[in-house]
Amino acid sequence: MLLLAGIALAFYWVPMAPLEGFRQRIFYIHVPVALTAYACFGWGAWKGLRLLWTRDQRHDLESYTAIHIGTIFGILTLVTGSIWARTSWGVWWSWGERQLVLFLVLFLFYSAYFMLRYSVDPGPRRANMSAVYALFGVVLIPISFLAIRLAEDLIHPVVFDRDVGTNLAGSQLFTFVVCLAGMLVLAAALYLNELTGKRVDARLRELRESLA
């Protein structure tokens, strides 16, 4: 509901941006999707850390599920970003943009997580390796996030600036916050559903083995 409200606000309530025009509305879906992907990867890394700290194998499935959902949001970030680039810069992708390339690196890094995970037999060793890998990936998140501010040859727009705060008007900020909240709630719902499904699946497998 929050997300639908945010989309409705983005299309029908927010005033037209003076420079960007209608295409600025992509911002209300692209940035929340990207931040949600970061949040999912961060949550996956946190669960990885918890696994290494407590040795509780429950965290392995939680970390894996968070990275799974984060990867879906990562794909959406790349696709919506490309659409915005096409309408704004006239190209689908620009290899010269550090922000884009770093996000792609982050996405590919976490995509490789699945290859690593499924190349090792299930058990504590796989859980530990996956957790360490998830923790390494989290280092890329602040780099990817800050790249937009560190880049000098910048064409990617900066909306939230440390010196001037936000470049958004009140209605724009409100719509952005609603969209972000909606996206985070959607990700949390998908995460919990996926986690429950995976737990039931694992439990059924154990039951089948014990009955066989």
């Binding site: 295409r23 959406l76 696709v79 659409i83 096409r86």
Partner: peptide, 18 residues
């Protein structure tokens, strides 16, 4: 307009993937 088409496409992509 072209901008409207692209903006709508971005939202539809997200909904389609979900």
């Amino acid at each position: 307009t072209s901008a409207e088409k692209y903006a709508t496409a971005a939202y539809l992509v997200v909904l389609a993937v979900v």
